[in-house]
Simulated scan of single mutants.
Amino acid sequence: MVQLAEKFNADLMRSVYKYDQWLKEEVVPHWVESGFSDNGAAIERFLENGEPDIYANKRIRVQARQMFSFSYAQHHGWISNGPALVQKIESFLTAKTDSQIPGFYPHALDASDTVILPHRDLYDCAFFLLAYGWRYHVFNDLNALNNAERLISQIELQLKGLKSGWDEGTIETSVRRQNPHMHLFEAFLTLYQFTKDGRWLAYAGEMFSLFETVFFDADNKVVREFFNADWKLNAYKGHIVEPGHMMEWIWLLMQYHKFTKKPVLHYCTALYQQVIQIGVDEDACVLFDEVSPTGEILKATKRCWPMTEWVKAALALSKAGDTSFDYESHAAWALNVLLTKYRNTQNPALYIDQLGADNQPLESQAPASTLYHLLMAHAEALSYVG
């Protein structure tokens, strides 16, 4: 087991301050100033030199995540034009897609804004629900709340799956994933937090039930990722475990406990201990992208976003009063890793998406989709230090 508390004794308050300054002074301003196409679309990513990748296809989930990001930045007073930025994205989606239901958009467009993947995707829908919740919270946007209502009705109508949960989308697939359901859990909890409408908490309860009965593997103390239509483990991908998602579930479960008082700590501590046991590269103390339930390394690369989930999980468990680990030191370490290993030293406004097996930068592009993760870690860190 990696003894982080013995190796590192970072000052959490200082780490949070540096992280806050990096996002506020460098990262977010760059996305605000240069993160849009001429037609209002949020760009897919920045290249290593800081220029927008104008040739990249546009994943529709990125538009939703950036709606969230600019709402969050407005909430913290980092920007004053959040409504205008969100409206640019909204106008782009209206102009370039054929959807009559907000949030129920085609999965992807090419660089010229032609729809290339017309199916609707559950993962995308989850992030539009999250974005609508934040738009309502920050801007008192009643239209966004109405959009959320219309979108969940459409999800129920078209994507409700057999044997609980929802289908992957409007396209047939032999594999079902926990990941879209995890993000629906997040969106439902967010909408309940901001509206206090019990229907959203009821939907979250459905996701919690899936976690207990399907996703959580009690024997191995891991979260399973890939399933067949009947929620049995997929024969080809069922062995894959993502440490980052396990950390993400810890934070979400603690959020669910906050609203329901449902006992979840036994799940959270089991998951955390297992991530530390099987999911950490001991040379650099960063999280592997994929491992097996027994700790076999399946992908020795390490993306940026799992470290943000480590921050959230550690601080949530510290708040809960668990003393299994020195969670504050773990969170401070994860923040410092984000500020050092995943910060682009040539262009500090950018982050590095992925490290290789040797813990050196492998992918120096900065995807827009990662900004959501960075900001969610900021939210938990700021909440923790008060």
Rank of each mutant, 00 (worst) to 15 (best):
W166N: 15
V2D: 12
A144W: 00
F36P: 06
L374Y: 00
M254G: 11
A366Q: 07
D281E: 13
L375D: 00
A148F: 00
C268I: 05
V291C: 07
N147C: 15
I276W: 09
E225G: 10
I276G: 04
V311G: 06
L184A: 07
M376D: 01
M254F: 04
T190A: 10
M13T: 14
Y123F: 08
N347L: 06
D53T: 11
S112I: 15
T323C: 12
A379L: 15
K261F: 11
S318T: 01
D141R: 06
M13L: 15
L315F: 03
W31P: 10
R199E: 15
Y256Q: 06
K88P: 07
A126T: 08
Y256M: 05
R303C: 12
T370M: 08
T308V: 02
D121E: 08
K302R: 14
N57M: 11
D322H: 09
F325S: 14
N39M: 14
E156N: 10
F127C: 05
W249T: 14
F139R: 05
A381S: 08
F185M: 09
C268A: 06
K312E: 09
L201R: 01
L271P: 00
S80Q: 14
N220R: 12
L151S: 11
V223W: 00
F70V: 07
T340G: 12
A148S: 04
K312Y: 03
H245P: 10
I276T: 12
C125Y: 11
V32H: 04
G133W: 02
S91F: 13
T370V: 13
I79E: 06
P106D: 00
K160N: 01
K312I: 13
V62C: 10
L265D: 11
V223Y: 04
A377S: 05
W305C: 03
K262C: 12
F92R: 03
T170C: 02
E380V: 11
A229D: 07
Y351R: 04
I54D: 11
F211R: 05
S383R: 11
K299R: 07
W333H: 15
W249N: 13
L191K: 01
F259Q: 11
L287C: 11
A316Q: 01
W200K: 03
P118F: 05
D11K: 10
I240G: 13
P102Q: 04
E51D: 15
Y272C: 12
S112Y: 03
N143K: 12
H181S: 07
K88H: 04
H330I: 15
